[in-house]
């Protein structure tokens, strides 16, 4: 295994005013591995992901992408963000662009790719999320599950080193979560480096290499999925899981 992790988070802290949301979080995401993050609402999971790609500025601590410290000037941050695909709970597709338009936008504007190349790449990415036939639709005409898969394709099109998922299925009807989870399982088994914030315990247990349980802005429990789900050491984690698995 190579020594430099795809993502390294070191003693990350974040406060909003007087509210301390992250209180010293450290972990590594080795290349090709999947880390699931679970925890109660308000425990700081979204804030943690958003600090990793600098959508929020951490109050203290460091994030390294492939060994390079994240931060500095806005242009440096933008450059490093290309390497981190992000998928949001609310999809956040751009409604004035077609599906294809959403997928090729960043490769063209940010990577400077030629349109023809970008279109070929988009086709590939849409195939990975099983939406090849929807390229010409506008987002408003898609189901939630389809929108989220387009959002995944859009992130993949930047050919990132790692993907960050923030509760990708939480705003979907239950019958639509599977199609998204299936795509994510496929990405995981293709060796995509991923951090997945999720309330889907079955996914976290089966698809991830490590599981982090976040509580009150700190990692309260961390380990292999079977260990965290089967024999959690922390009382809080046990309580959280028993509620989730009821």
């Amino acid at each position: 295994m190579d020594a430099v992790p795809a993502i390294r988070v070191v003693d990350l802290r974040k406060s909003f005013g007087a509210l301390e949301v992250l209180r010293g979080v450290s972990f590594d995401v080795p290349r090709g591995s999947v880390v699931s993050m679970i925890g109660a609402s308000g425990s700081g999971k979204s804030t943690l992901l958003r600090c990793i790609n600098r959508l929020e500025t951490p109050s203290a601590g460091e994030v390294y992408i492939d060994g390079e410290p994240m931060g500095g000037r806005l242009s440096d941050i933008s450059r490093m963000r290309r390497d981190l695909g992000m998928v949001f709970q609310q999809f956040n597709l751009w409604p004035h662009m077609t599906v294809i338009g959403n997928v090729i936008e960043a490769p063209i504007r940010v990577r400077g790719m030629r349109r023809k190349e970008a279109l070929a790449l988009a086709e590939e990415c849409l195939a990975r999320v099983h939406l090849s036939e929807k390229g010409k639709e506008y987002p408003a005409r898609l189901s939630g599950g389809q929108m989220q898969r387009v959002a995944i394709a859009r992130a993949l099109a930047m050919q990132p080193k790692a993907m960050l998922f923030d509760e990708p299925t939480s705003s979907l009807d239950p019958e639509l979560t599977d199609e998204v989870l299936t795509v994510m399982r496929e990405l995981a088994s293709d060796g995509t480096t991923m951090i997945v914030v999720t309330h889907e315990m079955a996914f976290a247990r089966e698809a991830s290499d490590r599981v982090l349980f976040l509580h009150n802005g700190q990692i309260e429990e961390e380990g292999l999925p079977d260990q965290v789900f089967g024999a959690p050491r922390s009382e809080r984690c046990r309580q959280f899981l028993s509620k989730k698995l009821q």
């Binding site: 958003r50 790609n53 959508l55 933008s78 450059r79 490093m80 963000r81 290309r82 981190l84 695909g85 992000m86 949001f88 609310q90 956040n92 597709l93 751009w94 936008e105 960043a106 504007r109 940010v110 959002a151 859009r154 992130a155 930047m158």
Partner: peptide, 11 residues
């Protein structure tokens, strides 16, 4: 969220 998504792509 539209802006977050754009920034996250490095725009």
């Amino acid at each position: 969220g539209h802006l977050d998504a754009a920034r996250a792509c490095g725009m």
